[in-house]
Amino acid sequence: MQIFVKTLTGKTITLEVEPSDTIENVKAKIQDKEGIPPDQQRLIFNGKQLEDGRTLSDYNIQKDSTLHLVLR
């Protein structure tokens, strides 16, 4: 499925993911596309910070959902 990740600069990254993917996996995909190390990434969905060990389906993230990427 496709999800979107919006950065603070207003750029939107499109990712191909599975609901069973962990947040860690998603961060690795963002690193592949953008070169941002996962330990600098914080992903936010519906105002909640997403934890590495959880999956997209844990957070009820579905296709065409938009996550927000904050760098630390």
Score class of each variant (00 low, 15 high):
Asp39Leu: 09
Thr14Tyr: 13
Gln41Trp: 08
Leu69Thr: 03
Gln2Gly: 09
Ile23Ala: 03
Asp21Ile: 12
Leu67Gly: 02
Thr66Ile: 14
Asp32Arg: 13
Thr7His: 01
Gln41Met: 11
Pro37Ser: 09
Lys29Leu: 07
Leu56Ser: 01
Gly53Ala: 13
Val70Phe: 07
Arg54Gly: 12
Leu56Phe: 15
Gln40Asp: 14
Leu8Trp: 06
Asn46Arg: 02
Gln40Ala: 13
Lys11Ile: 04
Gly10Trp: 03
Asn46Tyr: 02
Val70Asn: 07
Gln41Phe: 05
Ile36Val: 05
Thr9Asn: 13
Asp21Gln: 11
Asp52Glu: 02
Lys29Val: 01
Asp64Ile: 02
Ile44Gly: 02
Glu51Ala: 02
Ile36His: 02
Val70His: 13
Arg54Asp: 15
Leu15Asp: 00
Pro37His: 08
Lys11Ser: 11
Leu56Gln: 00
Pro37Asp: 09
Gln62Asp: 09
Thr14Trp: 07
Ser20Met: 10
Thr66Gly: 08
Asp52Ser: 11
Asp58Lys: 01
Asp58Gly: 02
Gln40Trp: 10
Leu8Lys: 07
Asp52Met: 05
Glu16Met: 06
Gly35Trp: 05
Asn60Thr: 01
Lys6Ala: 13
Gly35Asp: 06
Glu51Gln: 03
Glu24Asp: 03
Pro37Ala: 03
Ile44Pro: 00
Asp64Gln: 02
Leu71Tyr: 03
Val70Leu: 09
Asp32Trp: 10
Asp64Tyr: 01
Gln40Arg: 03
Asn46Asp: 15
Leu67Asn: 01
Tyr59Val: 02
Thr14Met: 08
Leu67Phe: 02
Glu51Tyr: 02
Ile61Val: 13
Asp58Met: 08
Ser57Gln: 09
Asp64Val: 03
Leu67Val: 05
Asp39His: 05
Leu15Gly: 00
Leu8Asp: 14
Leu50Ile: 10
Gly53Gln: 06
Asp64Leu: 09
Ile13Asn: 05
Asp58Glu: 11
Ile23Met: 02
Lys63Gly: 15
Glu18Ile: 05
Ala28Asn: 10
Leu43Val: 12
Leu69Arg: 00
Thr22Pro: 11
Lys27Val: 15
Leu67Met: 01
Thr66Leu: 09
Glu51Trp: 03
Phe45Ile: 07
Val17Tyr: 06
Lys11Phe: 10
Gly47Met: 06
Glu16Val: 12
Glu18Leu: 08
Pro37Thr: 13
Gln49Ile: 12
Ile23Arg: 01
Thr66Tyr: 15
Pro38Ser: 15
Arg54Val: 15
Gly10His: 10
Ile44Gln: 09
Val5Gly: 01
Ile13Pro: 00
Asp58Ile: 09
Glu24Ala: 04
Val17Thr: 07
Gln49Thr: 12
Ser57Phe: 08
Asp58Ala: 06
Leu56Lys: 00
Ile23Gly: 05
Ile30Gln: 00
Asn25Arg: 08
Arg54Ile: 13
Lys27Gln: 15
Asn60Pro: 14
Asp52Gln: 05
Glu18Trp: 08
Ile36Met: 13
Ile61Pro: 01
Gly47Lys: 01
Ala28Ile: 13
Asp39Val: 04
Asp52Tyr: 14
Leu56His: 01
Leu71Gln: 15
Pro19Val: 08
His68Thr: 06
Leu71Asn: 06
Leu67Tyr: 01
Asp52Gly: 03
Asn60Trp: 05
Leu8Gln: 09
Lys11Ala: 06
Phe45Lys: 02
Glu18Val: 11
Val26Trp: 01
Ala28Pro: 05
Gly10Leu: 06
Thr22Tyr: 05
Lys48Phe: 13
Glu34Met: 03
Gln31Asn: 10
Ile3Glu: 00
Ser57Tyr: 09
Pro19Trp: 11
Gln62Tyr: 10
Glu51Arg: 02
Ser65Ile: 12
Lys27Met: 10
Leu71Ser: 15
Leu67Trp: 01
Phe4His: 04
Pro38Asn: 15
Phe45Arg: 01
Lys6His: 14
Lys29Tyr: 07
Asn46Lys: 04
Lys48Leu: 15
Gln31Tyr: 02
Ile23Thr: 04
Thr7Val: 15
Thr9Lys: 06
Ala28Val: 06
Asn25Thr: 02
Asp21His: 15
Ile30Trp: 01
Thr66Ala: 13
Lys11Tyr: 14
Lys27Ala: 15
Ile44Thr: 15
Thr7Ala: 11
Val17Ala: 03
Lys48Ala: 15
Gln40Asn: 12
Thr66His: 14
Ile13Lys: 02
Thr55Met: 07
Glu34Tyr: 06
Gln2Thr: 15
Asp39Glu: 05
Val26Leu: 09
Ile61Asn: 00
Glu51Ile: 02
Thr22Lys: 10
Ala28Phe: 06
Glu34Pro: 03
Glu16Trp: 02
Ala28Lys: 08
Gln31Arg: 06
Val5Asp: 00
Ile13Ala: 13
Thr9Glu: 12
Phe45Gly: 07
Pro38Asp: 12
Leu43Asn: 00
Gly53Ser: 09
Glu16Ser: 10
Asn60Met: 11
Gln31Thr: 05
Leu71Ile: 04
His68Pro: 02
Lys11Gly: 11
Thr9Trp: 02
Met1Ile: 10
Phe45Val: 04
Thr22Met: 07
Ile30Tyr: 06
Gln40Pro: 06
Lys6Val: 15
Leu69Ala: 07
Ser57Pro: 13
Ser65Asn: 12
Lys27Ser: 13
Asp58Leu: 09
Thr7Lys: 04
Ile61Asp: 00
Lys11Glu: 05
Lys6Tyr: 12
Gly10Gln: 08
Thr66Trp: 14
Glu34Gly: 05
Gln41Val: 06
Arg42Gly: 15
Pro37Met: 13
Leu67Asp: 01
Lys29Ala: 09
Glu24Tyr: 01
Tyr59Asp: 15
Lys27Arg: 07
Pro19Gly: 11
Asp64Trp: 08
Glu34Arg: 01
Glu24Lys: 02
Ser65Pro: 01
Glu24Trp: 15
Pro38Ile: 14
Glu34Leu: 05
Thr22Asn: 13
Tyr59Ile: 03
Leu15Phe: 09
Glu16Gly: 06
Asp32Glu: 13
Met1Ser: 10
Asp32Gly: 11
Ser65Arg: 02
Pro19Ser: 14
Leu56Trp: 08
Gln41Ile: 06
Gln62Val: 10
Lys6Phe: 11
Asn60Gly: 11
Thr66Gln: 09
Thr9Tyr: 12
Thr22Asp: 14
Gly35Leu: 08
Asn60His: 10
Ile23Gln: 05
Val17Gln: 04
Thr14Asn: 05
Thr22Gly: 13
Gly10Ser: 12
Val70Asp: 14
Asn25Trp: 05
Gly35Gln: 11
Val26Gly: 00
Lys11His: 08
Leu67Thr: 10
Met1Leu: 04
Asp52Thr: 11
Tyr59Trp: 06
Asp21Ala: 10
Gly35Phe: 09
Gln2Lys: 01
Glu24Gln: 07
Gln41Glu: 13
Tyr59Lys: 01
His68Gly: 04
Ala28Tyr: 11
Asp32Phe: 08
Val5Thr: 06
Glu51Met: 05
Gln31Lys: 06
Ser57Arg: 04
Lys63Trp: 08
Asp58Ser: 10
Val70Thr: 13
Asp39Ser: 10
Ile3Asn: 00
Pro38Arg: 14
Asn25Val: 12
Leu43Ala: 02
Asp39Trp: 04
Pro38Ala: 12
Thr14Gly: 13
Lys63Met: 12
Thr55Arg: 03
Glu18Arg: 07
Val5Leu: 06
Leu69Asp: 00
Gln2His: 02
Asn25Ile: 13
Arg72Leu: 14
Ser20Thr: 12
Asp21Arg: 08
Val26Asp: 00
Gln40Leu: 12
Thr12Asn: 14
Lys29His: 13
Gly53Thr: 09
